[in-house]
C-alpha cells in the first residue's frame, strides 16, 4: 500500500511540471505581451509611460529573454515565493486575487459535492434495488429534468423564488455588511444562508448524472453470485445488498471525484456570473477576454493542479477501497 501511494505521488510530479509548461505556453499565445498591452492602453488613455517602471517589470519577468528563461522565472516565482505575477487588469498581484477566489470556490465546490452525494447515493441505490418500480420511474424522470434544465435557468428561478418568497436578494455569497469583513461565525452563518442557491443550481445536473451512475453500477453488481452466496449464509437481502454490491459499486463512484473537483470549480462559470458569485469562473473569463495573461495562466494552472490532485485523491481512495488495485491485480 505504501509503495503504491509513493508511486502515485511521484507520478504526479512530472504531470504537474507538464501542466505548468502547457499553462505557460497558453499565456504566451496572444501576440505581444503584457507590457506592450500595458503601454498601448496607457498611450490610448493619454497617460505618460514611465519607462523605468516598465524596465523593472520587464526585468522581473525577463520579457526580453528566451521563453525558457521566462518560464523559469515564472515557475520559480510560484514555487519558491508564491508569486504568480501581476494582474494587468487589477494591477494587483495575481496571488491576492487567486487565493481569495479559489478558497470560496473550493468551499462552494465541496458543499455542492456533499449535497450531490447525499442525494444521489441513496436514490441511486433505491432505483437499482427497486428497478422499474414507480419510485424508480419518478426518480428517473426528475433526474432527466434536472440534467436537461440549463443551470442559469435554475439559477434565475431560484433567485426569483428567493426574492419573492423569502424577500432575500440571492446574488453573491455574502450580505453587503460582511463583504469585506474578516471571517467570523456571523459571516460564516451569513454565507451558509446564501450558499444553498448556488449549491442547488450547481448540484442539480451532477445529482441527476450521479443517480444514473450509481444505479447502473448497482445494477451491474446486484445479479452477481456473491450476493446470493451471502444470502445463502443467512444474511437478509438488505444486509447482503448493503454489505457487498454497494461496496463494489462505490469504486466507479469514487473514481469520479478526480474530474468532479475541477468540473465543479470551472464548470459553474455561467451560474457564477448569473448569481454574481465571487468564485474563479467569472474572473477567469474576464482575464481571458482582457488577455490578462498572468491572471489567466495562473488560474488555468491552478485548475489543472486541482485536477491532478483530485485524480490523486481518487486513486488513493480507490486503492484503499479495492484490494485488487492495491495489490496490482488490475489497474
Amino acid at each position: 500500500m505504501l509503495r503504491y501511494i509513493i508511486r502515485r505521488v511521484l507520478w504526479a510530479i512530472p504531470i504537474l511540471i507538464g501542466v505548468s509548461i502547457v499553462s505557460f505556453f497558453i499565456i504566451q499565445l496572444p501576440p505581444g505581451n503584457y507590457l506592450t498591452a500595458l503601454m498601448a492602453s496607457m498611450r490610448a488613455t493619454g497617460e505618460s509611460v514611465d519607462m523605468s517602471q516598465l524596465q523593472t517589470l520587464s526585468e522581473r519577468y525577463g520579457l526580453d529573454e528566451p521563453m525558457i528563461v521566462q518560464y523559469w522565472k515564472w515557475i520559480s516565482g510560484i514555487v519558491l515565493r508564491g508569486d504568480f505575477g501581476q494582474s494587468f487588469l487589477y494591477t494587483r498581484p495575481v496571488s491576492d486575487l487567486l487565493w481569495e477566489r479559489l478558497g470560496l470556490t473550493f468551499i462552494l465546490a465541496f458543499t455542492s459535492m456533499i449535497f450531490v452525494w447525499l442525494i444521489a447515493f441513496p436514490i441511486g441505490v433505491y432505483s437499482a434495488v427497486r428497478k422499474y418500480s414507480i419510485g424508480d420511474y419518478v426518480m428517473t424522470f426528475v433526474g432527466f429534468i434536472g440534467l436537461a434544465t440549463p443551470n442559469f435557468l435554475i439559477a434565475l428561478i431560484l433567485m426569483y423564488v428567493s426574492f419573492t418568497v423569502f424577500g432575500q436578494s440571492a446574488g453573491g455569497l455574502f450580505s453587503p455588511q460582511y463583504l469585506d469583513a474578516p471571517w467570523s461565525w456571523a459571516k460564516f452563518a451569513d454565507m451558509m444562508s446564501k450558499i444553498w442557491i448556488p449549491v442547488v443550481v450547481i448540484g442539480t445536473a451532477g445529482t441527476a448524472a450521479l443517480i444514473r451512475i450509481m444505479r447502473a453500477n448497482m445494477l451491474d453488481e446486484l445479479p452477481k453470485t456473491y450476493v446470493d452466496a451471502a444470502r445463502a449464509r443467512g444474511l437478509s437481502g438488505a444486509h447482503a445488498v448493503t454489505k457487498y454490491p454497494l461496496r463494489v459499486a462505490l469504486n466507479p463512484f469514487v473514481s469520479r471525484i478526480g474530474w468532479e473537483l475541477p468540473e465543479l470549480i470551472s464548470g459553474a462559470t455561467i451560474t457564477a456570473i448569473v448569481l454574481s458569485l465571487p468564485t474563479t469562473g467569472p474572473l477567469l473569463l474576464e482575464a481571458l477576454l482582457a488577455q490578462d495573461m498572468y491572471l489567466a495562466g495562473s488560474f488555468i494552472m491552478m485548475l489543472s493542479v486541482l485536477t491532478v490532485i483530485g485524480t490523486l485523491i481518487s486513486d488513493l481512495l480507490l486503492a484503499w477501497l479495492d484490494p485488487r488495485i492495491r495489490q496490482g491485480v488490475v489497474g
Binding site: 456473491y226 446470493d228 452466496a229 463494489v248 479495492d322
Partner: peptide, 11 residues
C-alpha cells in the same frame, strides 16, 4: 455455487 470466483466478493 458453481463458480467459486463469482461467489466470492472481489473486495
Amino acid at each position: 455455487f458453481q463458480e467459486p470466483m463469482a461467489a466470492l466478493s472481489p473486495v
